[in-house]
Amino acid sequence: MKPINVALCSFGMSGYVFHAPFAAKNPNLNLYAVWERTKNEAVKKYPDIITFRTLDELLADNKVELVIVNTPSVTHYEYAKKALEALKHVIVEKPFVASTEQANELIALAKKNDLKLSVFHNRRYDSDFKTVQKVLENNSLGQLVEAHIHYDRYHPGLSPKAHKEVDTPAVGGLYDLGSHLIDQALHLFGKPNAVFADLEVFRPGAKVVDYFDVRLFYDTFRVTLKSSLFVKEVTTGFTLHGTKGSFVKSRADVQEAALQRGEIPGGEGYGIEPENEMGLLHAEIDGNENRIKVPTLAGNYMQYFDGVVDAIRNDKTLPVTGEEAALVIEVIEACLASNKEKRVIAL
């Protein structure tokens, strides 16, 4: 199989940590080019990479097949549209775009040009989430009653990245961390019937949402998605209750930290959580009450990139489709409307 030439639209944290290592490591991808306006950071780590100073120059290179739009979220729509118009396959960092209107336009453009359009919802490949998914698939909890998914941290100060603190479309905690949690919920449970959301700005001097409490309504169960930047004592990332029992699991995927240290994807111990982070299953099994530790599955973001390769070269279904990512944005829009109108919004 001929490797796919990949071009990054930036080499900040996203490029350095989440994309370049996988494009460089995957035998079916070739880390070919990067767009850096003035710096030369990528070539220091990847000496063979080509550096472009403008997006137009990058898109004009016929050797580029796949463009990763990993720039600030307010630019995603514009840059993804330009890449699709230049007949490149596209991966867009989350959040996909600001609105479902923009999402649907990009999806239609990709289909018109027979191109693949995906969004990097990498948290589907976290060790903790994969383990939760396995517990549900095994029907260990019986009929689900409620699920809580949290992504809490303690960061009361403003981000040093100025673009993350400007009150513009596609910016703020609901679009940022919220995209992860909403995608995880949709991947597990499908589209909800309705949404209620409480959004707030708690950090001194902040202008964008940094707290959210979202309720997703399904026919027979409820899902709560929550995030705050004022949680110093973090507990569980996932709590699920069903008719047979409960499962609780910390949010403990190790991939991001390992990649930030410069570790290579797929190396020894990659994606494996410490044993003390195993989830707890307290449920009735074979008529007996059990309270057992559940081994954690290994996280592996490379599965996402393998899926993109298979989609481009073999016309298989993308690991995350544009339509799936558009549904995340639809839920976010419903959350914004719910918070503004103080009511449940039907989907």
Results as ranks from 00 to 15, higher is better:
residue 256 E to D: 03
residue 155 H to G: 01
residue 91 I to P: 05
residue 288 N to E: 15
residue 273 E to H: 04
residue 183 D to T: 04
residue 302 M to H: 04
residue 341 E to I: 05
residue 204 P to E: 15
residue 228 S to M: 02
residue 269 G to H: 07
residue 28 N to T: 04
residue 289 E to S: 14
residue 69 V to D: 08
residue 288 N to R: 12
residue 20 A to W: 02
residue 310 D to R: 12
residue 162 A to L: 12
residue 129 F to W: 13
residue 1 M to A: 11
residue 118 S to K: 06
residue 124 R to H: 15
residue 324 E to Y: 00
residue 73 S to E: 15
residue 347 L to I: 15
residue 298 A to N: 02
residue 286 D to K: 11
residue 302 M to C: 02
residue 314 N to I: 01
residue 120 F to A: 15
residue 77 Y to Q: 11
residue 140 S to D: 14
residue 144 L to P: 09
residue 178 G to W: 00
residue 134 K to P: 02
residue 257 A to S: 10
residue 87 L to E: 13
residue 16 Y to D: 10
residue 56 D to Y: 07
residue 297 L to I: 06
residue 93 E to A: 12
residue 177 L to M: 01
residue 199 L to Y: 13
residue 246 S to T: 15
residue 178 G to A: 06
residue 342 K to P: 04
residue 250 S to Q: 11
residue 268 E to H: 05
residue 13 M to W: 10
residue 197 A to S: 14
residue 35 W to D: 02
residue 146 E to F: 08
residue 295 P to Q: 11
residue 51 T to G: 08
residue 137 E to L: 07
residue 270 Y to M: 07
residue 14 S to T: 09
residue 344 V to E: 15
residue 172 G to T: 10
residue 292 I to T: 06
residue 201 V to F: 03
residue 132 V to T: 06
residue 109 L to D: 08
residue 335 C to T: 08
residue 246 S to Q: 13
residue 109 L to F: 05
residue 221 F to D: 02
residue 313 R to V: 14
residue 113 N to T: 07
residue 305 F to Q: 06
residue 63 K to F: 02
residue 302 M to K: 00
residue 285 I to V: 12
residue 297 L to H: 10
residue 253 D to M: 00
residue 63 K to I: 01
residue 221 F to M: 10
residue 21 P to D: 08
residue 105 E to F: 02
residue 320 V to M: 11
residue 196 F to E: 14
residue 331 V to H: 04
residue 66 L to N: 07
residue 85 E to N: 09
residue 261 R to E: 14
residue 296 T to R: 06
residue 270 Y to A: 03
residue 133 Q to W: 06
residue 153 R to A: 13
residue 55 L to V: 14
residue 37 R to C: 04
residue 73 S to Y: 13
residue 180 H to Q: 11
residue 332 I to F: 04
residue 296 T to F: 03
residue 182 I to F: 09
residue 184 Q to A: 03
residue 195 V to E: 00
residue 33 A to F: 09
residue 42 A to S: 06
residue 244 K to E: 13
residue 44 K to R: 14
residue 279 G to F: 02
residue 167 D to K: 15
residue 303 Q to H: 09
residue 161 K to T: 06
residue 284 E to W: 00
residue 237 G to S: 00
residue 101 E to P: 00
residue 287 G to H: 05
residue 217 F to N: 05
residue 241 H to N: 05
residue 143 Q to A: 14
residue 302 M to L: 09
residue 72 P to S: 12
residue 102 Q to P: 05
residue 187 H to C: 12
residue 235 T to P: 03
residue 186 L to Q: 12
residue 179 S to Y: 04
residue 331 V to G: 08
residue 61 D to S: 14
residue 218 Y to I: 05
residue 106 L to P: 04
